[in-house]
Amino acid sequence: MTVRSALLTNAVIFHNALDIAEIIRQLLEEGWEIDPEDLAHISPYLTEHTNRLGEYSTHELGIQPEAYDPKLDVDFTPLREQDLTAAGLDQAA
């Protein structure tokens, strides 16, 4: 994989992660309850709509992205506790 295609792949994955986070925020604002277990099955690495090895030109877009907000108000504690229990790490030595 060339540096250019790796950069493009990472940019697409990051963009997908931003879109997923924005949709989750919108659902939370609408009053939906978000189950961390469901989020564990979502991946920003989607390939059906991307030609990873194709040629892309982005300079003519001229779009300035908004600042990224890394805060996602979802409590992942139950998943962490579940992982610790499954690994047997929740017990005192």
Rank of each mutant, 00 (worst) to 15 (best):
L72W: 01
L8V: 06
I34D: 12
V3S: 14
A93D: 14
F76P: 02
H15G: 08
E81L: 10
W32D: 11
L8P: 07
I63H: 09
I24K: 07
D69A: 05
G62W: 03
W32N: 10
A87F: 03
E33K: 09
D75S: 05
T58W: 14
Q82D: 12
N10K: 04
I63R: 13
A40N: 12
L8I: 12
R52F: 15
A86T: 00
Y56K: 10
E55A: 11
L18P: 01
T47L: 06
N51F: 04
I23M: 11
Y45A: 14
P44G: 05
L61T: 01
D90V: 07
A86C: 01
I24T: 15
L61C: 06
H59Y: 05
D35V: 00
R80M: 13
A92S: 11
I13N: 00
P70C: 03
G31W: 08
K71Q: 13
G54C: 04
L61V: 08
S5M: 12
T58D: 07
A17M: 05
R52Y: 14
D69S: 03
F76H: 08
A87C: 04
I20R: 11
I42M: 03
A11Q: 08
L39V: 00
P70S: 09
D19V: 15
S5P: 03
R80G: 02
H15R: 09
L79E: 09
D90E: 12
L7G: 10
V74P: 09
L7R: 07
L18R: 14
L28I: 14
G54K: 03
Y68F: 15
A92G: 04
A67P: 02
T9H: 13
I20M: 14
T2N: 15
T77R: 12
Q64E: 15
Q26S: 07
V12Y: 03
L7F: 03
G88K: 09
E29I: 04
L53T: 05
A67C: 00
D73C: 00
I13C: 01
T9P: 00
I24Y: 08
A6F: 11
H41G: 10
T9E: 11
A87R: 05
E22Y: 00
D38P: 01
I34L: 13
V3H: 14
A67R: 09
L79W: 04
I23S: 13
Q82E: 13
L8T: 04
P65E: 06
N10E: 12
G62A: 11
H15C: 08
S5R: 15
G88Q: 11
I24L: 08
